[in-house]
Nucleic acid binder design. Structure first.
Lengths: 172, 172
DNA sequence: CGAAATTGTTTTAAGCCTAAAATGTTTCTA
DNA sequence: TAGAAACATTTTAGGCTTAAAACAATTTCG
């Protein structure tokens, strides 16, 4: 497996083929760029949520999950969807119940399970924030053409699948 | 500015042009996908670093910055590069000095400035980790063709520029 | 020069986050 | 049906992270 998988083309792949210990610099640069983009946007959204609504990003994210599930979700569901640890969700929920945004109840059929929902207040506040949030995102991506957006979606779907496969290989 | 900037094409842009309150669902979906990819990969890297080297991701990231700067960096530089708060860096550095990976000294020319460097131990450990880290990244992105990688790099560069512009608009 | 603004870092207070262990509940299975 | 395995959640311990305020040193400028 010769290491010709980066964009600095080799005219003669035989020249250095044997003793190259695999060059993955391009993938590494891609990962750093992906991380930079996410950090940049996330920081911007975090700051705007705090300034405009005095709410933290994790709280907003949790409410966003619940807004999509009118019948409520279990803590495990939330934890999987948000890709954060169980314990993290416990604390987050605690604070949101405390502030009156969430309603928590033990499931009737399985006493292990906690079902959480947005309260009326929680839903109203989330909708108000979400509307503005959407315009921020649109603005942050404003210089991408519709075609760029489609293409990015496609490539990120491929990336996600690749990463999931790799993560699966490790665990099994 | 009619709202035709998503990929669900309108056959007749006059039909709904007037009363559409701007649809940015595509950008929103793109942002969520970007976030998912990053979270997925970051979690995987975090776990592997912990299992293989008993080191946290932030520590690794900080050491990565310093490895690229043999003459050291100031805390501000590090904070800007890593896109984290100043206070965050202070604590991170504290623990890495404590464990013998970093060397910290006050600048001779400006007594406000702290210059930090990797120690011999720090550099050796980082290099060992970095080599393996690079293979993990390559594996996580393994299903992307070289062309995919190039294209993603290009689109993410555009994304980064767009987001920076938007963030700048807000601050000014 | 000396006050004011700026810059670099640390501190503070609060919240976020994780991995691992503990707890309580349900389901599987011998 | 009893014990084991699996599951959902919470707790624990430690570290990460932020925003804002405080502190210290330097630079700017009237």
């Amino acid at each position: 497996m010769p290491a010709a998988s980066d964009c600095t083309q080799m005219l003669d792949s035989e020249t250095k083929a044997v003793e190259t210990p695999e060059d993955h610099a391009e993938e590494l640069r891609l990962w750093l760029r992906l991380l930079t983009c996410t950090t940049l946007i996330e920081g911007e959204v975090r700051g705007r949520l705090r300034q405009r609504f005095d709410v933290t990003l994790p709280r907003f994210d949790l409410m966003a999950q619940l807004d999509k599930a009118p019948d409520g979700m279990t803590l495990s569901d939330v934890s999987k969807r948000m890709m954060v640890s169980n314990g993290n969700v416990t604390g987050l929920v605690e604070r949101l119940v405390e502030s009156g945004h969430l309603d928590r109840r033990t499931s009737d059929t399985d006493r292990r399970v906690q079902v959480i929902r947005l309260t009326k207040l929680g839903r109203a506040e989330f909708r108000r924030m979400a509307a503005e949030h959407e315009t921020w995102i649109a603005d942050l991506f404003a210089d991408l053409s519709p075609k760029d957006v489609r293409e990015l979606m496609r490539l990120l779907a491929k990336t996600k699948a690749s990463a999931q496969k790799s993560a699966g290989r490790r665990r099994s």
